[in-house]
Design a protein around this nucleic acid. Structure first.
Length: 591
RNA sequence: GGUCCCGUAGCUCAGUUGGAUAGAGCAACAGCCUUCUAAGCUGUGGGUCACACGUUCGAAUCGUGUCGGGAUCACCA
């Protein structure tokens, strides 16, 4: 149980004993004491004054005295300023937290919940390589899965691969027209980039053809429909749906090129999946759902045979769920896939990591599932995240401003190399150790940069800022870990507990921060938000660095202090490593 | 136009179940390495928390309105 919760329970008990009335956690607030006042935690008294009919000083003193008497192991003193009751937690309590947890690598993790949670993330299209936006998605999805695991949930990581449709046919057509049989092997190109190049070629040619038709007197809308390359693409989609052998063959071949490229990038960034769903297998799902919906009168069939749901009573629109030709739309496929996931894995919660441009879609999806009475409707959670933009504005593929994931990773790695060489601290590393370090640092910088921001908010990716390894960054935290390890290589703690000893302000502040880690972890899970962990671990590292500069471990004032600080060092290193691991970032022993 | 989200220091972000004088980083300036890794630490300057009104003992946080920015409202996915 966290300190704050303990204080809450002690205070509830005290208030009930003193007044004979019942109280709950909602009746008053407990905060961390502001640094300018004496104390560690503060009970805000204002909300209690009226119900108890007491003055701030009177209530504060009664409550403070009671807590000191009945919870002597927790509190050493109190003071009252205006309506704030500041409690000083005894040093003995903090050192006991240290002794109990300093070498517990599971510190902060939750008990087994016996619940299964699915996280769907990444979800690429197989017509172009991954870009910066995908990286935010991948890092978020992977991290939230780790955070759930740490809180005691069983996790299934999935990915829905958008491997069919008109956009896939575009790169296929362009390859047929322009490639002369070229392959990733023959051109020495990474497969996903190779296919992406033909997607670009399609758009160039399409644009050229449309302009040509317009200059021959056709209006724009017609030209866009009549361009030969577009007509060929639409025909190809029909051929694909009919299973025409040569089209299927080309489709399989080109997708296999893309998958080879994706695998490389996923491996590099540490994304992995327990199960991949392919849209080519799921796009026909949902027909049964439509039947059920019609029977339950949730859906209505119009004269032209198309099927709709009316959500206007819920403040939304009418939504189509089946085309007049009887095929499923995106929405229906998603309901079908949700059903399939539920049946295959019996999941208790289903998290979808999808950009906020689909907020409306996900809202509608969940609402339809509810109206259909599907058992998994309430378990759907849309982890919505904002777009990644550049200082110059949005990324636009047409303007070539999309930041490619592989390029970015290469760039980051060479910056890591350059900075490491400049500092020259690891000259004895082997070539392999160096390579590993560059990878660790570059990924640490990038993941931290993308995860430290509240997922819901759109964010600006500033290339110059992202390669900074100072200040509020991943490498700063990694560096702090390496510093601690440097001390611990020289000397290990001789004891596994410490005598109660007066704590210096920075020692105490570190222990208070460390003690709050489980609460932060729990909050990150409940709010589906890795940025809480990211901001917490930065704060911890920063506090440690102040402590490190101010107080020597090896040359401590006394042997008792030295042992105390060695334990604090080990505790801090463990929490930093554990928290960073939840963000998908590893921490080096040296850097 | 309807619905939803956002607006905090020059820039990027914390802080939002209402609590004390709103915090970090970057950028600027001034210091600190013969002592555990200076990718560090310490200090200075920098704010109409978009604006207005309201609720409250107390509002960046809650409500209403205004302004500004974004997303979405396809027989696309």
């Amino acid at each position: 149980m966290g300190m704050q919760q303990q204080i809450q329970e002690a205070a509830i008990n005290a208030l009930q004993q003193l007044s004979g009335k019942p109280f709950t956690a909602k009746d008053f607030q407990i905060n961390k004491t502001k640094p300018e006042f004496e104390g560690d935690y503060t009970i805000v008294l204002f909300s209690l004054l009226k119900p108890l009919g007491k003055s701030p000083d009177a209530l504060g003193n009664e409550l403070g005295k009671f807590l000191l008497e009945h919870n002597a192991e927790l509190f050493s003193s109190y003071n009252i300023i205006k309506g704030f009751l500041n409690l000083v937690v005894s040093d003995g309590y903090w050192t006991s937290v240290l002794s109990r947890n300093y070498n517990d690598v599971c510190f902060g993790t939750g008990a087994q919940k016996h619940k299964k949670v699915m996280v769907e993330y990444s979800s690429p299209n197989t017509n172009k390589p991954l870009h910066l936006g995908h990286l935010r998605n991948n890092f978020l999805g992977w991290s939230i899965a780790e955070i759930y695991k740490a809180n005691g949930y069983a996790i299934v990581k999935t990915c829905i691969v958008n491997d069919r449709g008109i956009h896939i046919c575009k790169s296929m057509i362009a390859w047929q027209l322009f490639a002369n049989g070229a392959t990733p092997q023959s051109t020495n190109t990474k497969g996903d980039h190779f296919v992406g190049d033909y997607y670009v070629k399609f758009n160039d040619e399409y644009k050229r053809q449309v302009e040509e038709l317009i200059s021959n007197g056709m209006d724009k809308a017609t030209a866009e429909k009549e361009a030969p390359i577009m007509k060929a693409t639409q025909q190809m989609l029909l051929d694909w749906e009919a299973g025409k052998p040569d089209v299927m063959e080309l489709w399989k071949t080109m997708n296999s090129w893309v998958y080879a490229g994706f695998d490389e990038t996923y491996k590099r960034i540490g994304s992995d999946f327990d199960k991949a769903y392919y849209e080519s297998n799921t796009y026909l799902l949902g027909k049964k759902t439509v039947e059920e919906g019609l029977q339950k009168n949730v859906f209505v069939k119009k004269d032209d045979n198309s099927v709709w749901i009316d959500l206007t009573a819920d403040g939304l629109d009418e939504k189509i769920v089946q085309r007049k030709d009887g095929t499923s739309v995106y929405m229906t496929q998603d309901i079908g896939l949700a059903q399939q996931k539920y049946e295959e894995y019996k999941i208790d919660e289903s998290i979808y990591v999808i950009g906020d441009e689909q907020n409306y879609h996900m809202k509608v999806l969940q609402l339809i599932c509810k109206k259909l009475g599907l058992p998994y409707a309430d378990s759907i959670y849309h982890l919505s995240y904002g777009m990644v933009e550049l200082p110059t504005g949005k990324m636009k593929s047409r303007e070539g401003t999309v930041v490619d994931a592989d390029d970015l990773l290469n760039e980051m790695e060479s910056v890591a190399q350059q900075k490491t060489e400049e500092l020259g601290k690891v000259k004895d590393f082997t070539a392999e150790e160096l390579k590993e370090l560059y990878k660790t640092l570059s990924l640490g910088a990038l993941k931290y940069y993308l995860l430290r921001v509240d997922p819901k908010k759109k964010m600006i990716f500033n290339p110059e800022e992202s390669i900074d390894f100072h200040g509020h960054t991943g490498p700063f935290i990694q560096y702090t870990h390496a510093r601690i390890k440097s001390i611990l290589r020289k000397e290990k703690a001789q004891r596994n507990e410490v005598q109660e000893t007066p704590l210096l302000p920075l020692e105490k502040e570190l222990l208070i921060t460390l003690e709050s880690y489980p609460t932060i972890l729990d909050q990150a899970c409940k709010e589906h938000d890795p940025s809480h962990i990211a901001n917490y671990v930065y704060h911890l590292a920063k506090t440690y660095n102040s402590f490190y500069t101010e107080h020597s471990v090896m040359n401590a004032e006394s042997e008792e202090k030295k042992q105390l600080r060695l334990l604090i060092c080990e505790f801090t290193a463990n929490v930093i490593a554990g928290a960073m691991q939840l963000l998908g970032i590893s921490v080096p022993e040296r850097m």
